[in-house]
Amino acid sequence: MTGQSAVARTRPPHRYLHDALLYDSPAELVDIAAPWLLEGLAAGDAAVVATSAATADVLRDAVGGEPRVHVLERGDVYRARTPTAITTFRSLAEQRAAEGISRVRVVGEVDFGPTERDWLEWQRYESVINEALGGWPLWGLCVFDTQRLPDPLLESALRTHSHVLDGDGGRAPNPQFTEPAAYLRSLPVPREPLEETVPRLEAGDVADFIGLRHAVAAELGTVDAPRDLVEDFLLAVDEMTSNAVRHGGPPVSLRLWVGGDRVVCTIRDRGPGFDDPFAGYGPAHGDDLSRGGMGLWLARQLCDHVDISAGEHGVAVRLTVRLG
């Protein structure tokens, strides 16, 4: 890796704050988060709530229906793919800046999903945004219900937020915070059982890129799924295969599996790889999209899971999309 990561190069000259509140009851949530929002309004900040409907209702009541506290649908902010959530928060900051507001306070509550595989994407996100939003005029207070969330997610909350708010509403440095690059590198690449079965399609040494694309498209054409989903996945496969051919080392190989609930494609090359744990959470060349470097960024937006493994035998990029 050379120079700053892609997400760092896109920063305006401001500073992002990323705090956590682990609460035991709705009363504790209200006692800390509601004054935090109102203090922001008094200081001239915008105040936004992007949480579950239940949490939003509690906070709305606690601030007395204050109209300047904007409640957003959680699904409109924390969308299915984590890079889209990053883009959404950046857009929110830009909109408020255009209105003359210098900072946006956001009470956020991620929907981590039902499985550990889903959790992982959002655990990555909570760490990545320390870098991806690092220069944006946002102050995030991420709230975690200790009575509902499993221990691994509560532990992750403490490792991904540099400051915590305590029961008295005080803000303190978090000694359990782990630098984002180190935390991201510590996360596992999950096992994919489909990779242990016979693939639907296998290309051992990609030479005919156009022919391979037609072969992948033909296999995906048999999948019972919305066409938009299939086309998006094909585009992600195209981008990652093209990246491997251009930037990796030969031979480049591809294997495709179709399961009952998901499609998986793994692209391998023998190149030296790269060591940027933030790769794909922003275009490689920042806002200048004319310079390219969008492949992994697009793949992360088009797929439910993007897993990268690098070692002495090269690099593997695994793309997964859920069906239906």
Rank of each mutant, 00 (worst) to 15 (best):
V107N: 03
G3F: 11
A85Q: 01
D275V: 06
T82L: 02
P35H: 07
T320D: 01
M1C: 14
V77S: 07
A8P: 04
N130E: 04
H247D: 04
L289H: 09
Y16I: 04
A97H: 11
D111G: 00
S242F: 15
R268F: 00
E131T: 12
T241V: 15
A203K: 10
L72H: 12
T197I: 04
G324R: 15
V30F: 11
H214L: 15
G271T: 06
R148H: 12
R318G: 12
S127D: 05
L165M: 13
F112W: 09
S242D: 14
E196H: 06
E196T: 07
G292K: 09
I210M: 10
R200E: 06
F144H: 14
P150I: 08
G134T: 03
L72P: 00
L138D: 04
T178K: 08
P272Y: 01
R96M: 12
V110W: 00
S5M: 08
P283D: 00
A62D: 02
D307W: 15
R191C: 04
A218V: 13
G44D: 04
I129N: 03
E202P: 00
G100Y: 13
G311E: 11
V128E: 00
D45F: 09
A279V: 08
D205Q: 10
V245T: 13
R90T: 07
P67W: 11
L41M: 02
Y23C: 04
R148V: 15
L296M: 14
L72Q: 09
T88Y: 10
A20M: 10
V223N: 01
T82W: 01
S5V: 11
I308E: 04
L229T: 15
R81I: 01
D151H: 03
P226Q: 08
V30T: 14
A93R: 12
Q147E: 14
A316Q: 14
E312H: 15
T84F: 02
G211M: 15
A47K: 07
P152I: 12
C142G: 02
P199L: 06
A157P: 12
E28P: 02
G140E: 00
R81M: 02
D19H: 15
A8I: 13
A316C: 10
L201G: 05
D145K: 11
H163A: 07
D228T: 14
G324E: 09
I86C: 01
G135A: 08
N174T: 03
L319H: 12
D168G: 09
L92V: 01
E73H: 10
